[in-house]
Computed example of a mutant assay.
Amino acid sequence: MKTALITGASRGIGRAIAEELGKDHHIIAGATSDASGIVDKLPSAEPFEVDLSDTDAIVAAARKIQDVDILIHAAGVLHKAPFGELDAQQWRETMDINVLAPVTLTRELLPALRRSRGLIITINSGAGFHGVEENTAYCASKFALRGFTDALRLEEKGQVRVTSIHPGRTDTDMLADPKHGDRPKMHPDNVARAVRLAVDAGPDAVVEFLRVAPA
């Protein structure tokens, strides 16, 4: 059975991915705290509880993992407000969680992923391609994540497959606040199925980019 580490696995898109891949993978379920809510519901799973804003904690936790086949960066934060109302702490948290945590975790697990000729998937956003009003920090982080993913794909070609998935508006608690509007949203299971497509494409092919949006 292959092993998949999924950050943000306790809720939203990350949880949907864990439930989908948990059908035939051992899941290392990433959560800031108390991953038991998802771990207890999967056939084969273990917790990966770490504060993704703490680089040292990520490194320490990752170095306990010996083998992994799939790494999925699904954790993320969104502070919606006009640029002038976002403070330094909100910018720092956005970059720490959305960019630096994936970079750190990837760096630590890359040797294991190379050994398994594995797969890295980043859950990005449409905001990784175009600006969104009152989402300056989020857009900046997703543009950065896309740049990292695209460059890493080129560097690791032939060793580790790298996929960037860009969901449209998804019905998660991230967009639950009325200030995010009432435009159509899709269920997180749709994103999980897109991840499944990327996972099942290997090992001799890679889904480099996939955009999934509400119909």
Rank of each mutant, 00 (worst) to 15 (best):
residue 1 M to Q: 13
residue 2 K to F: 06
residue 6 I to H: 00
residue 8 G to N: 03
residue 8 G to V: 01
residue 8 G to C: 10
residue 9 A to T: 00
residue 10 S to N: 08
residue 12 G to Q: 04
residue 15 R to N: 06
residue 17 I to R: 02
residue 20 E to G: 04
residue 21 L to Y: 02
residue 22 G to M: 02
residue 23 K to N: 11
residue 23 K to Y: 06
residue 24 D to W: 05
residue 24 D to S: 15
residue 26 H to Y: 13
residue 27 I to V: 10
residue 27 I to R: 03
residue 28 I to H: 01
residue 30 G to Y: 01
residue 30 G to S: 11
residue 31 A to T: 05
residue 33 S to C: 15
residue 34 D to K: 13
residue 34 D to R: 09
residue 34 D to W: 13
residue 36 S to H: 15
residue 40 D to H: 15
residue 41 K to A: 14
residue 41 K to T: 10
residue 42 L to F: 13
residue 43 P to E: 15
residue 43 P to A: 13
residue 46 E to S: 14
residue 46 E to T: 07
residue 47 P to E: 07
residue 48 F to H: 00
residue 51 D to A: 14
residue 63 R to N: 15
residue 64 K to I: 06
residue 68 V to M: 09
residue 69 D to V: 00
residue 71 L to T: 00
residue 71 L to Q: 01
residue 73 H to P: 02
residue 77 V to K: 04
residue 78 L to Y: 08
residue 79 H to A: 13
residue 80 K to I: 15
residue 81 A to T: 05
residue 81 A to K: 13
residue 82 P to E: 08
residue 83 F to N: 10
residue 84 G to W: 07
residue 85 E to V: 04
residue 86 L to F: 03
residue 90 Q to Y: 04
residue 91 W to K: 03
residue 92 R to N: 07
residue 93 E to V: 06
residue 94 T to K: 00
residue 95 M to K: 02
residue 97 I to G: 00
residue 100 L to P: 01
residue 101 A to S: 09
residue 101 A to Y: 05
residue 103 V to K: 10
residue 106 T to A: 11
residue 108 E to R: 05
residue 108 E to K: 07
residue 109 L to K: 08
residue 117 R to H: 09
residue 125 S to K: 03
residue 126 G to T: 05
residue 127 A to I: 02
residue 128 G to W: 02
residue 128 G to D: 06
residue 129 F to I: 09
residue 130 H to W: 08
residue 135 N to P: 02
residue 138 Y to E: 06
residue 139 C to V: 12
residue 139 C to D: 03
residue 140 A to E: 06
residue 142 K to A: 06
residue 143 F to P: 01
residue 143 F to Q: 03
residue 145 L to D: 03
residue 148 F to A: 04
residue 148 F to R: 14
residue 155 E to L: 07
residue 158 G to C: 09
residue 160 V to E: 02
residue 160 V to L: 11
residue 163 T to N: 04
residue 164 S to M: 05
residue 165 I to W: 03
residue 166 H to V: 05
residue 167 P to H: 08
residue 170 T to G: 02
residue 174 M to Y: 03
residue 175 L to E: 00
residue 176 A to W: 05
residue 177 D to C: 03
residue 178 P to C: 05
residue 185 K to W: 14
residue 186 M to C: 12
residue 187 H to E: 15
residue 188 P to K: 01
residue 188 P to W: 00
residue 189 D to S: 10
residue 189 D to E: 15
residue 190 N to F: 13
residue 190 N to S: 07
residue 191 V to P: 01
residue 192 A to R: 03
residue 195 V to P: 01
residue 195 V to I: 15
residue 196 R to M: 14
residue 200 D to E: 15
residue 201 A to P: 02
residue 202 G to S: 08
residue 203 P to H: 07
residue 209 F to L: 09
residue 210 L to K: 03
residue 211 R to T: 15
residue 213 A to M: 09
residue 215 A to Y: 11
